[in-house]
Design a protein around this nucleic acid. Structure first.
Lengths: 142, 142
DNA sequence: TATATAACGTTACATTTTATCGAATATTAT
DNA sequence: ATAATATTCGATAAAATGTAACGTTATATA
């Protein structure tokens, strides 16, 4: 599928001296190949086709790695992971989650980071990262 | 502590013909008494002081009940529950989570519901509920 | 090559959540 | 009041999710 993503990932690893290992490569491919957020244990199931007898930590470690560097995001309300669709690095994420069909799209309402930054300026809170999950019905479902 | 909340909860149950049972009463009190989001199993620990040998479903059912009617919110990124500090009913929630001291405050950035509503008008997505969790450092910690 | 570091494999376990089912309690209609 | 109905609970069990620990392997660096 998204082999440009894999290239980007490989480049990233080389540039930053991280290892592009088999578990990492496979896990990223599995998550990127899913059109919906995928759960850790489902990632693990797919991993079994590629690695010999992988255990939960294998999946979780690779997930954690890619999440840390923003290649994937965790959808907290679903306990699931989704490839990042943004081109730019971002410390905040936004998702629209359809309760009907389960489709999740990463949104880019640019007012939201602005508003959060405003809070910082007021010295109320120094935001490092944030996540917005909106649930409802997508345009295809109504 | 917050006995006005308990009164509000009782009134709500009477008005809507829900039962204000011992598990529900206790669980709400436990969560409201905590100054930080509290996990289900910690709720359960406290429940043991009040009920005889409660099991996980007892806690989870009461949690689910109060969450459904917006008396408490689930903080997805923490797997924890927090009493709702808003007076009004709201379909969206916002939290500022301090990575240092763990303090969580419910914020009320009113631009956010406005922005989400704007999306609806554009027919992009029909939002039913939403949740924003911002992580960083609170004003007390820096 | 020696050393340090990063990542992995494996085991075992901890935590969080849910399904099921019968009993108890409350509500409603008769 | 009593029967029928719906709600909630108690208890058991298990599923789903996530992590600690530890020794081994692979890679990078001196």
């Amino acid at each position: 599928m998204n082999s440009s993503l894999e290239k980007k990932a490989l480049d990233f690893c080389i540039k930053n001296k991280h290892r592009y290992t088999k578990p990492r490569e496979s896990v990223l491919r599995i998550i990127a190949s899913s059109n919906k957020p995928i759960k850790a244990y489902d990632v693990l199931k797919h991993l079994k086709k590629v690695l010999k007898n992988p255990k939960p930590p294998t999946a979780y470690r690779a997930i954690e790695f890619w999440e840390k560097y923003n290649f994937i995001h965790r959808i907290d309300s679903l306990n699931a992971y989704f490839v990042c669709e943004a081109e730019h690095l971002h410390s905040g994420s936004q998702f629209l989650i359809c309760n009907q069909c389960g489709e999740v799209t990463e949104s880019h309402i640019c007012e939201i980071p602005k508003i959060i930054k405003k809070k910082i300026e007021k010295n109320i809170f120094s935001a490092k990262s944030w996540n917005l999950e909106v649930k409802g019905i997508c345009s295809k479902c109504f």
